[in-house]
Amino acid sequence: MLTIERALVNKIIEHARADHPDEACGIVAGPEGSDRPTRFISMTNAQRSPTYHDFDSKEWLQVDREMDANDEEMIVHYHSHTSTEAYPSRTDIGYLRSSLADPRVHRLIVSTRDPHEAEVRSYRMVDGEVVEEELVIVESYA
């Protein structure tokens, strides 16, 4: 289950809408050892593609060092789908099954195919299978 503040979800949706028709991507970091995402970090989609995303490598290195210095880690990896539902594509699933994907990270997908309503869902890889998890959006963690 992913519990996340509404303000963070709103920022993810805003980023996805701003980058449409290209996929948007980024992370939400939080304290190491926690499952509480707290810091929104929008990333540049180096592919600038409506069907694929990839973090800019220089930007990712900077963000990774910043998280390390702040004792943070990636809690959520988000990206958008511009013309399909908020469900992992074959490319997404291939990445999730690779050795590069951290199984502890929540994979949040927002669909911007409807210009008036965003569909937001979260997934994790469990025993080699993509599993949708409960997404709980709260006003505040307090």
Results as ranks from 00 to 15, higher is better:
residue 78 Y to T: 06
residue 40 F to D: 12
residue 19 D to I: 08
residue 122 S to G: 09
residue 79 H to F: 01
residue 74 M to E: 11
residue 48 R to M: 14
residue 126 V to A: 00
residue 12 I to R: 04
residue 33 G to I: 08
residue 81 H to I: 01
residue 92 D to Q: 09
residue 106 H to C: 08
residue 124 R to G: 04
residue 84 T to G: 06
residue 4 I to E: 01
residue 44 T to W: 09
residue 22 D to C: 15
residue 55 F to I: 02
residue 129 E to D: 11
residue 33 G to A: 05
residue 56 D to A: 15
residue 32 E to P: 05
residue 46 A to P: 04
residue 133 E to K: 07
residue 116 H to W: 13
residue 83 S to H: 12
residue 39 R to G: 10
residue 90 R to C: 10
residue 95 Y to I: 13
residue 31 P to G: 15
residue 79 H to C: 09
residue 131 V to R: 15
residue 138 V to R: 01
residue 79 H to N: 08
residue 113 R to G: 05
residue 18 A to L: 14
residue 86 A to C: 00
residue 140 S to L: 04
residue 15 H to T: 07
residue 2 L to I: 00
residue 62 Q to E: 10
residue 142 A to K: 14
residue 112 T to C: 07
residue 5 E to P: 02
residue 100 L to A: 10
residue 7 A to M: 08
residue 7 A to R: 12
residue 96 L to G: 13
residue 8 L to D: 04
residue 57 S to F: 07
residue 19 D to R: 15
residue 32 E to D: 09
residue 129 E to W: 03
residue 25 C to W: 06
residue 56 D to W: 00
residue 41 I to S: 11
residue 58 K to C: 11
residue 46 A to N: 13
residue 110 V to I: 01
residue 11 K to N: 09
residue 89 S to P: 03
residue 26 G to A: 10
residue 108 L to T: 02
residue 69 A to Y: 03
residue 13 I to W: 01
residue 92 D to N: 07
residue 53 H to N: 13
residue 86 A to I: 00
residue 61 L to D: 11
residue 94 G to F: 05
residue 47 Q to A: 15
residue 132 E to D: 00
residue 130 V to H: 00
residue 65 R to S: 12
residue 52 Y to N: 15
residue 80 S to N: 07
residue 55 F to Y: 14
residue 86 A to W: 01
residue 113 R to N: 06
residue 118 A to D: 10
residue 131 V to Q: 06
residue 114 D to M: 02
residue 50 P to G: 10
residue 128 G to Y: 06
residue 13 I to L: 01
residue 136 V to T: 13
residue 32 E to Y: 09
residue 61 L to F: 07
residue 130 V to F: 03
residue 94 G to D: 09
residue 70 N to A: 11
residue 10 N to M: 15
residue 2 L to G: 00
residue 26 G to E: 07
residue 119 E to A: 06
residue 41 I to C: 11
residue 85 E to V: 08
residue 23 E to Y: 04
residue 34 S to P: 06
residue 2 L to S: 01
residue 98 S to E: 11
residue 56 D to M: 02
residue 83 S to V: 12
residue 56 D to P: 11
residue 37 P to M: 04
residue 69 A to L: 08
residue 105 V to Q: 06
residue 61 L to Q: 12
residue 104 R to C: 11
residue 3 T to A: 01
residue 27 I to F: 13
residue 99 S to P: 11
residue 9 V to W: 00
residue 30 G to I: 03
residue 10 N to I: 01
residue 111 S to H: 00
residue 21 P to M: 05
residue 98 S to P: 06
residue 98 S to K: 14
residue 105 V to K: 06
residue 68 D to S: 09
residue 57 S to A: 10
residue 107 R to D: 10
residue 2 L to W: 00
residue 38 T to V: 10
residue 23 E to Q: 13
residue 13 I to E: 05
residue 33 G to S: 06
residue 12 I to N: 07
residue 104 R to S: 12
residue 13 I to M: 03
residue 115 P to C: 12
residue 62 Q to T: 14
residue 80 S to R: 07
residue 78 Y to Q: 05
residue 79 H to A: 04
residue 74 M to G: 07
residue 113 R to P: 02
residue 72 E to P: 05
residue 129 E to F: 05
residue 107 R to H: 12
residue 59 E to P: 09
residue 80 S to L: 01
residue 8 L to M: 02
residue 44 T to M: 12
residue 122 S to C: 15
residue 105 V to P: 03
residue 130 V to L: 08
residue 68 D to C: 08
